[in-house]
Simulated assay, not measured.
Amino acid sequence: MHPAAVVHAQRKLENAERALHNLRNAEDFSEIEREWSAFLMALGTIYTKLEQGSKLNNVSRGWFDQVKRERREDKLLQYLHQARNAEEHGIEDITSRNARILRQPLKLPNGKTAELRISLPAGPEDLQLSEDGNETKLFDGLQRISSTVALVPVKNHGTIFSVPDEHLGKPFAPVDPLAVAEAGYDYAALLVSTAKAFSELN
């Protein structure tokens, strides 16, 4: 394994880690989608750098052949790879925006309190009441409970790749960008660590 490839792969791993951190702290749809895309791009480049570096000798080349085989056979790793390709080369969305649940505390005429929960698609976080052509807010202080971005099947060269439900031979759930990114990052970190060990044997 060429040491320079490991250096470049480590840098891309740091980019993936940064995107993962931002994904954990994302607060709206656009942030989640942007960081998910950034993570996929960084992850894909790690493979590219290590593949080039593995050509230095037969030992590292054989190891990376196994890595590529595992990526083809593992549902989560294959999905990450194909989602990255679809994001870079395709025009279809690789995520979908789920409905949000909003919460509004209410005080009832009998003095008791209640809570109104409202499910809305992506859009402004307020409800409006239209009366005689004049729009006013129906409620003030709506509190968001959940706002999620879901993964969707991705398509490349006519083949559809489903959202993964298995990783490394075990059932995988929940399936959302953050959970899949965390699993992908852990796997990539192990790849870079292994590649580094190979580079020290040169």
Rank of each mutant, 00 (worst) to 15 (best):
A189L: 12
G62L: 07
K55T: 08
I101Y: 11
A42T: 08
E87I: 03
A197Y: 00
S37F: 12
D126T: 04
L50K: 05
D126P: 02
A197P: 00
S199A: 15
E135H: 05
L43K: 07
G133M: 04
Q52M: 11
K170D: 10
L76K: 01
Q104H: 05
H21Y: 13
L76M: 11
L106K: 01
N98I: 09
V180Q: 02
R100K: 14
K112H: 03
V180P: 00
R72F: 09
G90E: 13
A26P: 02
E88V: 14
L20T: 03
L168Q: 14
F29N: 10
V192N: 00
M41E: 15
H21F: 12
E51N: 12
N57T: 02
N85S: 13
A86I: 02
E35R: 08
R72C: 07
G123F: 13
A16P: 11
T113I: 03
A181R: 01
N85W: 11
K170W: 06
L106V: 02
V154A: 05
V149M: 12
L13I: 07
E27N: 11
Q82E: 14
L191W: 04
L102F: 12
G62N: 12
Y187R: 13
I32M: 13
N25Q: 15
T148L: 14
T48K: 15
M1N: 04
R103N: 10
E27R: 13
L80T: 01
E35P: 03
L201S: 07
L120F: 08
E200K: 12
W36P: 01
T194A: 10
L138C: 02
E17F: 08
L50W: 12
G169C: 06
Q82M: 15
Q78A: 10
L191Q: 01
K155P: 00
S37R: 14
H81P: 04
R18Q: 14
F139D: 09
Q143T: 09
N57K: 03
G62R: 05
P171C: 09
T194H: 11
S119Y: 05
E135C: 03
T45Y: 14
L191E: 03
W63E: 10
S96H: 09
E73D: 15
K107N: 02
I160T: 08
E182W: 03
V152N: 00
D132P: 00
N98K: 15
Q82I: 07
A86Q: 10
S147I: 08
P105Q: 04
D65I: 11
W63C: 08
V175Y: 04
K49C: 08
G133I: 07
N110H: 03
T136E: 07
A16G: 06
P153R: 01
A183Q: 09
E131H: 07
N15V: 06
Y187K: 02
K75E: 13
T113D: 12
W63K: 04
D74L: 12
G111L: 03
L138N: 01
A179D: 10
L77G: 00
P164D: 12
A122E: 15
G184P: 08
V163P: 00
I160C: 00
S162V: 04
K112C: 02
A38D: 15
N85C: 14
F64K: 08
G44W: 06
E131D: 05
L102E: 10
A5L: 09
N202M: 13
P164G: 01
F64I: 06
D93L: 14
L116R: 05
D74Q: 08
I101H: 11
N98Q: 15
R11I: 09
K12Y: 15
